[in-house]
């Protein structure tokens, strides 16, 4: 089955990203196709490489980056949500005159159309959040 995953909440504050990660990993292991993982609302905060959790805790951001590398996962951060919350890649830094970037490996910033496309192209849209 072809799936698009939507993550609506940030890391650590809320379990949504953990659940989405475990679900995505399990789906891939079962042979399902993940068309895209789309991060929206505070979910965009899953894509900052500046996250530094305590060493005895899971690293939510790195876990997504590693899963992306392993399975060529498309991790998309919503640009409008990212701009509000300060998630920045090179293009956004240049466009908006910011002095730094913080996007993590494997993530990219793009538009909401990517979420709609995911819903249209996939068999299921699985949403994690409240």
């Amino acid at each position: 089955m072809k799936l698009t995953i939507q993550v609506n909440e940030g890391p650590y504050q809320h379990q949504a990203s953990d659940s989405a990660y475990h679900f995505t990993k399990a789906a891939l292991e079962k042979g399902h196709e993940i068309f895209r993982v789309f991060f929206y609302h505070d979910g965009v905060n899953n894509g900052t490489r500046l996250t530094t959790p305590p060493q005895d805790d899971r690293n939510v951001v790195n876990r997504w980056s590693e899963l992306s590398k392993e399975h060529d996962l498309d991790l998309v951060i919503c640009v409008a949500a990212a701009q509000r919350r300060g998630i920045v890649d090179d293009g956004e830094a240049e466009r908006n005159g910011k002095d730094a970037t913080n996007i993590a490996d494997g993530f990219r910033i793009s538009g909401l159309g990517q979420l709609i496309e995911g819903a249209v192209q996939s068999d299921r849209l699985v949403v994690f959040g409240d």
Partner: peptide, 28 residues
């Protein structure tokens, strides 16, 4: 496609960011 809106408009950003998806999604 159905957009389900369950939260009050200003206490959280969900309502506004839902509307943004609806407006962008209209192009599809």
């Amino acid at each position: 496609l159905m957009y389900v809106n369950r939260r009050a408009p200003y206490g959280t950003i969900y309502a506004w960011e839902s509307l943004e998806v609806v407006l962008i999604g209209a192009a599809f």
